[in-house]
Each structure stands twice: as structure tokens, then as C-alpha cells.
Computed example of a mutant assay.
Amino acid sequence: MSFELIASKRVDLGTGASRRLRHAGQVPAVVYGAGKEAASLVLDHNTMYYALKNEAFHTSVLDLVIDGQKEQVKVAAFQMHPYKQQVMHIDFARV
């Protein structure tokens, strides 16, 4: 099973910017590794929420499309809200 995620780069950084993204139905994310600079991203919340429910998503190599450029990544870590069904943040590691 292959997964393809659509993301865009994030310009506004920080706690307030991340909070505004979550209220707008988006998830802040970071992709790092492979000797490249870390990049801050934005993903759609519902897509990520339902993908994280799939067990294969956590162990697969994913195709992450960042502003038209495809990179292969794995899920490194993610954070969920303590009692809401909300993804707070997700980290990806380049393969």
C-alpha cells in the first residue's frame, strides 16, 4: 500500500501560528534528515487523522509532495490532543 500526502511549506512559525493553523483545519509538520535542511510544513487535518488510524501508515515509506516536489519519508513522531480527536503535530524523517 502506498500513501501520498500533499503538503505546502509554512511561512509563519511559532505557537500562535500553529494554533491558527489547527483552528483552520490544518496540521503543522516538520520534515528533516538526509543531510538536508529541516522544513516546516502544513498538511490537511482530516487526511492526516484518518491516515494515522491505518496501521500500515506508521511503517510505510510515504510519498510527501511539498509544493510539487516529491520526497520519500517515514513518520518519525506525532502528537495527538489529550481528549479531542485532533492531530497536534507530526514529524517526518527523510529516507
Rank of each mutant, 00 (worst) to 15 (best):
M48L: 15
K84E: 08
V30Q: 06
A56C: 05
T47G: 00
S2K: 15
V31A: 07
V27K: 00
S60L: 03
G68T: 09
V65W: 04
L43H: 04
L52T: 08
F57Y: 04
V27A: 01
H58Y: 06
H58N: 08
M48D: 05
F92A: 09
M1S: 14
D67P: 14
L13R: 13
V61A: 10
A24E: 15
V75Q: 02
M80S: 11
A7R: 02
L43T: 10
Q72P: 00
F57A: 10
D44A: 06
I66R: 11
I6P: 00
T15K: 11
L5E: 02
A7N: 02
S8H: 14
I66C: 10
T59E: 11
R19I: 12
G16T: 12
P28S: 08
Y49A: 13
R19G: 00
A93D: 05
R19W: 06
A24P: 00
L52K: 02
M1Q: 12
G14R: 13
G35I: 09
A17K: 09
E37D: 13
E37K: 14
D44F: 02
Q26A: 11
A7D: 01
A56D: 15
K36E: 13
S18W: 07
F3S: 06
V11F: 06
A77W: 01
Q86C: 05
Q26K: 15
E71A: 09
V95C: 08
E4G: 00
V87K: 00
A24Q: 14
E37P: 07
V30P: 11
